[in-house]
Amino acid sequence: MTMRQGLAGGLVLVLALMAPLAIQSDFWLGFLITILLFAAMGMAWNILGGYAGQFSFGHAAFFGTGAYATSVLHIALGLNPWLGLLVAAAAGGTMGLLIGYLSFRYGLRGSYFALITLAFAEVLRILANTAGFTGGGVGLYLPLNIGVANMQFAGKAGYYYVALGLALASILIAWRLERSRLGAWLAAIRENEDAARALGVDTFACKLAAIGISGAMTGVGGWFYAHYYLYIDPEIAYGPGVSVEILLVAIVGGLGTVLGPLLGSVALHAAGELAQRLMGDTPGLNLIFYGVLLVVMVRLMPDGLAGLVRRWMRPAGGTQRA
């Protein structure tokens, strides 16, 4: 990290910390919270999809498991929501290891891996709909009980700082990973798994580590969602909507980059908001605009936003990932 980058990062961090003081609007603060939450989960996806090259269509499996773990224990046993964070991370991570063990053990790659993660999320959705302790299709209501100890804040600022913490932590994890041996191994697996194995990389263990970390981080995203909205049901927790949104953020931002998911989350949510404001109140027009914008973004930025930023920084045709 150069001096200049460090300074820029510090400045952004200071601005981010001061945002709630400057932004009086609960809407815009809520908007930033959503951006940060999906940036954190996009980063989680990126560790598996971007760094390790294993595309998942079913990150809802981890999101929902985290959300249900903390909610069920909070309701049934009065588990403190802050402790729930650890439980959600553990639950999401375990689910990651479980799915990863089965998939990687049998050597699934590419679209096969993508589809099996989707199938696991669907299985969990159906189970959550059936099981008694998840409340079935009725969903789970977390009791309203405002208090910092209970992770319920009177204003949005509290939630903002928690979401900011999650996003920063995820960036830090990705940044550390990129510079670690595991990061190098994962990159090798992404580029050519057989070659990596031939060089003595334990590809199975590496991929398992990636999905475990990714699952845990996404589970924490579910934890935040549950305590922020105080309600989850099988469709919210395990539906394909969350999986798609998470992967969109990561891919639009740029695969395998530290800041990509954050950029992607900002761009996608800004696009959604812009679409709604420009297109007015006729149902559907805003989403048509959003869809077109998505296609155009991919057309103009094949390497994601982070790729675009890279090209700007090195105008003389720097290195580009294939």
Partner: peptide, 9 residues
């Protein structure tokens, strides 16, 4: 992403 965008549209 493109097929997703197309389906949304």
């Amino acid at each position: 992403l493109v097929t997703l965008g197309v389906s949304i549209v």
